[in-house]
Design a protein around this nucleic acid. Structure first.
Lengths: 211, 211
DNA sequence: GGCGATTTCTGCACCAGGTATAGTTTTGCC
DNA sequence: GGCAAAACTATACCTGGTGCAGAAATCGCC
């Protein structure tokens, strides 16, 4: 279907990739805050003005890689087999993510990914930018729940907020441990256990919380 | 204990208040983005540099008012009567907030508060700044759960994430409705019902979510 | 291949938030 | 009254981000 994207389009994609690559290389080498967008533009052989035509902010040079995941939970819920509860579908999907070491689960220790996660975790403006994805994911998931699970508006929003918060916490926990040096393969079993515990908590509630 | 804060300290407090007041007045009148910190400084009869000595960022000129609430949930959990579960204590506290129209519940329609909430809701950088409070609240609450409810680390973090997310969603929902024109007194009954529903969901889990 | 029309890129000037520095004023205290 | 510490100010600077006008590349068509 996309056999003929046209030279213009192809060039745009190449330029975009070049900018992103130059940015991430420089950021990983010298630190996000210590590299200016001017330096990135120069490294990518593009004017500063053009860089901002491709990426609206400096932070986006990094986090655009996660943009797709914003609607992932919503897609999973929509695509679940008939008779499956949303929570089950999401749990299975998350467990598969762990098995496959999907970076979004925080359980990927390929050097590039690891360094990227580390950088994000200790750069406040990048963390803030990631939070916006969380909000987007919440909204999309709520909509999916409302549409496919006959869930009232408020319940959908509450459930979505809980689910996204929990998935985020799990991924963060994994990413932190890996950033601290634990190998992914060694962490895997624990990550699975934790995920199952977390989804059980979502499913059964917090009523067991000691008084 | 603080009978003699000293002239220096009192003056600092007055300056701080003057800056904050000037800022909020100008922001509410002309919009957050359309007022520069230079204008705020001038209105407060203070140099720009001094303004930044009191408030680290422009956003903090607005959101510093919410700083206390960051640890509120944690305090409530720590101060709960013996034999009370954390969730019960938090629910009671939230319901009391609604009754008293505590701005933090989103259920206060005093013009100043309302206008402030409206401004925050449609200023992305302010929303982002508020999210950081959410993160702080999560961390503090997790710590309180861990310490006072004999809850394992991960469970505490997961529970805190869920609880804060839910309270946030409730407050947001109320604030949005009020921003849309609904009077607080008229919204009250619904807000209580919603809160009770939300805490029940937290307590009993999402297992009822239709397949 | 050539040639207008359109899109993209660039350079430049500009604004605002935030920081570093060095010097001036104010306050606390003996 | 006078001295040290603290707070404040002016100034210059850096960086992210935007507006604008013109140069350059691409497209589609002849």
């Amino acid at each position: 279907m996309n056999s003929k994207p046209g030279l213009r389009e192809r060039k745009k994609q190449r330029t975009r990739a070049a900018i992103s690559e130059a940015a991430i290389t420089l950021f990983l080498e010298h630190g996000f805050t210590r590299v200016s967008v001017a330096q990135v533009a120069e490294a990518a052989e593009v004017s500063r003005r053009t860089l901002f035509a491709y990426f609206p902010t400096k932070e986006d040079l990094v986090v655009h890689r996660f943009a797709d995941h914003e609607t992932e939970a919503a897609r999973v819920v929509r695509a679940r087999p008939a008779g499956t509860t949303p929570l089950t579908a999401l749990r299975e999907h998350f467990l598969r993510g762990l098995r496959e070491r999907d970076p979004i689960t925080g359980l990927n220790d390929r050097p590039g990914i690891l360094a990227l996660h580390r950088m994000i975790l200790d750069t406040p403006s990048l963390v803030a930018r990631m939070e916006r994805f969380k909000t987007g994911a919440e909204r999309a998931l709520a909509e999916a729940l409302r549409e496919t699970a006959a869930t009232p508006e408020l319940t959908a929003r509450l459930a979505a907020a809980q689910i996204v918060a929990v998935q985020w916490a799990l991924a963060n926990d994994n990413a932190e441990r890996l950033a601290y040096g634990e190998p992914a393969d060694e962490r895997y079993a624990g990550a699975v256990q934790d995920a199952e515990h977390a989804f059980a908590l979502l499913e059964n509630g917090l009523h067991r919380l000691a008084s």
